[in-house]
Simulated assay, not measured.
Amino acid sequence: MCADTAAPSVDYRDTVFLPETAFPMRAGLPQREPEWLARWERIGVYDRLRSTAAGRTPFVLHDGPPYANGHLHIGHALNKVLKDMVVRSQQMMGRDARYVPGWDCHGLPIEWKIEEQYRAKGLNKDDVDTVAFRQECRKFAEGWIDVQREEFKRLGVTGKWDRPYLTMDYHAEAVIADEFMKFVMNGSLYQGSKPVMWSPVEKTALAEAEVEYHDHTSHQVWVRFRVIHGDALFTKTPTDVVIWTTTPWTIPQNRAVAFGPEIAYGLYEIIGRPEDSTMTIGHRVVLANALADGVLAQGKLLGPDMIRKLCDVSAEDLKGLVLSHPFRGIEGGNGEWDYDVPMLPGDHVTDDAGTGFVHTAPSHGDDDYQLGVKFGLPMTYNVEADGS
């Protein structure tokens, strides 16, 4: 047996024949990219592209502008790089592909940054002069426009960076006002109401994208609306339409009760009750058949000795009913709730949960609002700007 010996080392560099190039072995992008960008800016590559593409079919990318309120994040990078690819590809396909970047200089994101500065100094925004506050917001936006512009250019995005569009340019604001006046003059402008997301801290409307949702446990209530007009079947004996809601604070603004035209409903009579129940024997309730047992169980009305179904109730029957608001005649109400509550068909009503009826407050929630607009229900206002 002989000992293992190491294989002779071979240097293969002399056996590989590659073409000689001036390219460096390493890309060195962190060092070289700024050089390329500086050269593009020095030779005015964007303007030269415009001159060489004069007369071609135009391609315009309408870019939603970012807020000028901080450094760029990965979302900005993804957004702008993808759009830059689109613009460049259109240019290479023979079009005059222009890209004018811009910034949104108005709105809550910028105001919130200024308020953070105020809070750090122990100041209250409401105590600051409105014009002074706006000027601070404008100055803040101007500073971040310059920062973000350089950051976008560092990403290699080609555009008209020396003349971007800014929503706070006085000319832009004048154009917006001019276009707005066209709506005024041609009669298209109207004043109306609709429910919106609202910030009680900022006392301003919020976009859906600005709202963050967290899990919340709500109180649920069942509320009876007494039938006051309709067929004698529902008025001769005290009869209630029962609704279920997890937003009891909207009950004061109720203006209707919605039902599902395709849902099967029934009229149920109370013929017995436990000693601790507040229900009245002989009274009747209208409920969706699929949900009746569950609702009645909540009122401890279980079994044939306490409840019996009298008949089915059709959509036509429900359309003819007029209800009384549960606060009607309440002490100290000064007649505020002494109005009739109609029964209205609504496609958003289901029998998946609740009672099969939906209390409708047009000032709270889009479904309620749309139903209110469709049937001309009055809009009400019961929440102050500070949420009280």
Rank of each mutant, 00 (worst) to 15 (best):
R226D: 10
D317N: 14
L287R: 07
S51I: 00
S388E: 08
V175F: 06
D11Q: 12
S9A: 15
F327Y: 13
T278V: 02
N254C: 07
A3N: 13
G294T: 08
I176N: 13
D129V: 06
R88A: 06
A53N: 14
D347S: 15
A232E: 14
V147T: 15
S324V: 04
L61F: 09
L310R: 10
D240P: 03
T280E: 15
Y99E: 03
A177G: 08
K300Y: 00
V131A: 12
T247Q: 04
S199W: 01
L49A: 10
R39G: 01
V257A: 07
V257W: 10
Y12V: 08
A297M: 07
G294A: 13
V286Q: 11
A77K: 04
E142I: 04
D386M: 10
N69W: 06
F357M: 05
D14M: 07
A297T: 14
G55Y: 04
R119Y: 01
T380P: 02
K236Y: 01
H76W: 06
I145E: 11
K374I: 01
A232C: 04
R42Y: 01
T250S: 07
Y213A: 03
L206E: 08
L206S: 07
T355L: 03
V196M: 05
W103H: 05
W198H: 04
D63S: 11
R163C: 02
D317K: 14
V373T: 10
R308K: 15
G335N: 07
T355W: 05
G143S: 13
I74A: 11
D162Y: 14
T247G: 05
Q220N: 12
Y170L: 06
P24H: 12
G387W: 07
V128F: 10
R328W: 11
G107L: 02
L49C: 08
F375T: 08
E275V: 11
Y118H: 08
G299Q: 14
G354M: 03
H325K: 06
S9Y: 11
M197N: 15
T237I: 09
E111T: 12
A172D: 11
D352K: 12
